[in-house]
């Protein structure tokens, strides 16, 4: 089987960029088959096709997963993979209408709200952990590095939350 494995990283607020990239890959005949490691996209080589990719984020309980995937399948969406809470769907584009997984603004904003609250849960843990990590004797000479690492992680988290917040307010104000 002709496969292509590609590493590419998208941040939590770049889902639309990622969707567009996957659509471009499909136009070139590379169809997402699965996701291996985080950031590892495995493509199957085939005929170039016009597909739309959409990423959903629900934070589903295990017992709700089946009915969720089934609803998307019934509506014509193929479930291609999962990564860190994100669910990847694909739909064939027929004609000029682009299929969407959200049909109104409110529910689309809801998706970003869920991503944001998912990140916010970890924020206090990191704030509590950060000074401790930099302080533990056990880590010896690595203390500085660990402290720096957790500080950058905290910065990244805060940045992600700000970006998601901006995404939501753009939806609210401009509807796109």
């Amino acid at each position: 089987m002709n496969t292509l494995s590609k590493f590419k990283w998208f941040w939590a607020w770049q889902d639309e960029k990622e969707e567009a990239w996957l659509g471009e890959m499909a136009k070139n005949g590379y169809h997402l088959d699965s996701i291996g490691l985080p950031g590892q996209y495995i493509f199957l080589r085939g005929e170039p096709g016009n597909f739309v990719y959409r990423l959903d984020f629900q934070g589903l309980k295990a017992k709700d997963r089946d009915s969720y995937y089934q609803l998307f399948a019934d509506a014509g969406w193929e479930h291609v993979g999962d990564m860190g809470g994100w669910v990847y769907f694909r739909h064939l584009v027929n004609g000029s209408e682009i299929p969407e997984i959200y049909s109104d603004l409110e529910s689309k904003m809801g998706k970003y709200h869920r991503v944001m609250s998912y990140l916010i849960i970890f924020l206090p843990i990191m704030i509590i952990m950060m000074p401790r990590v930099a302080d533990v004797e056990l880590f010896g000479p690595f203390r500085g590095i660990l402290g720096l690492l957790s500080a950058s992680l905290l910065l990244l988290y805060s940045f992600a939350i700000i970006q998601l917040f901006r995404r939501i307010s753009r939806l609210r104000k401009k509807g796109i």
């Binding site: 959409r54 959903d56 629900q58 009915s67 969720y68 089934q70 609803l71 998307f72 019934d74 509506a75 969406w77 299929p99 969407e100 997984i101 959200y102 049909s103 109104d104 529910s107 689309k108 809801g110 998706k111």
Partner: peptide, 27 residues
């Protein structure tokens, strides 16, 4: 079930209300 709701809404609203699966699932 969900998909039947989608189809019925589309039909009885004469195409004015289209429910995408993510929106319907949340609703």
């Amino acid at each position: 079930h969900g998909y039947a709701v989608m189809q019925e809404a589309d039909e009885v609203s004469q195409g004015t209300v289209r429910l995408a699966p993510g929106t319907l699932y949340g609703a």
